[in-house]
């Protein structure tokens, strides 16, 4: 009986945790200065070149750059701030987790 309880707990924990692990792979960066397609393209190109980046999506309305990382990869806040600066823009906020 104890084994069954442990097994059920393990399954439940895994199911509950999966979205959290998946969400860790999503980084949202709020960027100042994003006003046109050229700006969007610049951030897309610079961030998209980084190892471990699966996709980059820019939303000009919210000024958000949404970065999907490959499993086991991440980009630190310092690195992201540097990349956005290299693109010609500045970071307002970085958040990690659900989109």
């Amino acid at each position: 009986m104890k084994t069954i309880k442990t097994f059920i707990f393990a399954i439940a924990f895994t199911i509950v945790s999966l979205p959290a692990f998946a969400a860790e792979n999503v980084i949202t960066v709020e960027v100042n200065g994003l006003v046109c397609d050229f700006c969007a393209r610049a951030t897309e190109k610079v961030i998209g070149k980084q190892e471990g980046v699966e996709s980059v999506k820019v939303d000009l309305t919210t000024k958000h750059v949404l970065i999907h990382m490959k499993e086991g990869h991440t980009l630190s806040d310092d690195v992201l701030t540097g990349l956005i600066s290299d693109s010609g823009y500045s970071v307002s906020k970085i958040s990690r987790g659900a989109e």
Binding site: N32, G33, L34, V35, C39, K63, S90, S92
Partner: peptide, 9 residues
């Protein structure tokens, strides 16, 4: 110089 603001540049 570039002035990056939340809604302008």
């Amino acid at each position: 110089n570039r002035w990056n603001k939340p809604d302008s540049q």
